[in-house]
Design a protein around this nucleic acid. Structure first.
Lengths: 257, 257
DNA sequence: CCCAATTTGTTCGTATGTATC
DNA sequence: AGATACATACGAACAAATTGG
């Protein structure tokens, strides 16, 4: 038997990673905010006593995380950058490239969150906001007559929900609603050819947005909650009838509802 | 007046970013899975006709996103890697370093998700899983007598919820419950010195876990839902009494409940 | 234990591109 | 147009880590 040399944890970070972490702590400690400029490459090389290549790799790491952006030219350099919603969505999306999600998974979350969102917004929206919601609704006035039309309506519906989320003051709620909407928008409908669009089902949800906006305007949060809960139930059922499946792919950063 | 050359969008990607995206598409197209080896640095240099430095920066970008890992030595190379929950948590946490979250924000989500989680698990857990939950509960048998003890109980409670989430078959639910728990664990309790721990409040929630486990065992999902809803309400109220505040910092990848 | 092969990791000098003045 | 200040890119050499003989 050999005496096993227990290597505490072989999880040593590469030097660029160490430098990236160091810069991150530095930014935090100094309280630098988006727009502030980090020291130039040359200064970083001095301060960390690392070569240009290593420093550059460290900066790439931070850039990939969305924390900095760099510009060339005079007055250029590396700048602290607020992580964008797009970047955060893409990065989290990568996680679910491997942890496969089903339609049911996404709808379990939507069913829990969306009614709560609606309830929390009731009576708190301005006229301008309510009008903006009504604006997005226009493409709903008729039931879909083809699979393609139905899919378009679904996408439009997701946009409506994303807009609603945008009106929440809760950044986590905003992000999650929009993230799940993006996951659903990024699907392929592989419906059997003989399946007809289910008109009654959409008809039942046709006026839900009018009713929702009325509830939001009057401040009836219980009504808003139940209207959205009912709609989620219908939408989920419709996806099942369509035998919709989630595609597996890395979300491009650009694509956002 | 000069004829302005309208640069469509100055969002040109740097070459390492282009290479990183190309590799990502390549992995997707080839259907490579975690553990599969990418071509060696030398081969990538040939294939993309880029310098070593550029290729390495591209690999660093993918590594920062958690998509690949590289090892030195013979048999080494760059390998496709499943994005870990820790990495995903850290990356999403960066987003909320700038989009400040309040306790209320996090609890609005928890209040919506946790009862739904409990309901979905009722009647679906094995005896071993139920016993594991009972195991974690043990540190709850007495009300806290100091602020420190109360905080420890809170952390333990978060661990209980994380364990419960782990039993869900919904990867999105699993991630979100654990993410929010991590956000809450990463706080400082800045309580006024003269504030005493609120014993009645904890006492009211003392046996909630026993009742929850009973409901889970018997398959009573309505009961499970309402028990957890009630507990969330109490926990949220307690946090307010403690004047707890969320700290703003970049979450280290290691720290997971 | 040492040596050799393989692959990533790091350094440095130089040159190029880009934006500002 | 030219000078300046900055990031960006390249190439060759060397270092470190891992594996197998």
């Amino acid at each position: 038997m050999q005496p096993v040399t227990t290597r505490a944890i072989p999880e040593r970070l590469s030097r660029p990673q160490q430098v990236a972490e160091a810069i991150k702590s530095w930014v935090m400690a100094k309280g630098w905010r988006p727009g502030d400029r980090l020291p130039s490459e040359a200064e970083l090389i001095d301060r960390f006593a690392m070569s240009k290549g290593t420093i550059r790799e460290a900066i790439r790491i931070l850039e990939a995380q969305g924390l900095v952006k760099s510009r060339t030219g005079p007055g250029g350099g590396v700048f602290v950058h607020q992580v964008s919603e797009e970047r955060a969505t893409a990065l989290l999306g990568n996680y679910f490239y491997f942890e496969h999600l089903t339609i049911d998974d996404v709808y379990q979350i939507r069913k829990a969150l969306e009614p709560e969102l609606a309830a929390s917004l009731a009576g708190r929206l301005s006229d301008a906001q309510l009008r903006a919601l009504e604006e997005v609704m226009t493409c709903y006035d008729a039931p879909a007559r083809s699979a393609a039309e139905e899919r378009d309506q679904h996408i439009a519906s997701l946009r409506f929900h994303a807009l609603l989320a945008e009106m929440s003051e809760n950044p986590l709620m905003r992000f999650l609603i929009r993230f799940t909407a993006n996951m659903l928008a990024d699907i392929t409908v592989s419906r059997k050819l003989y399946t007809q669009p289910n008109q009654e089902l959409w008809a039942s949800g046709l006026d839900y947005q009018q009713r929702l906006i009325a509830a939001l305007r009057s401040g009836d949060s219980a009504a808003a909650r139940s209207i959205l809960a009912e709609h989620m139930h219908n939408a989920h059922r419709l996806m099942h009838l369509q035998e919709t499946v989630l595609t597996q792919r890395f979300l491009p950063e650009s694509k956002i509802i």
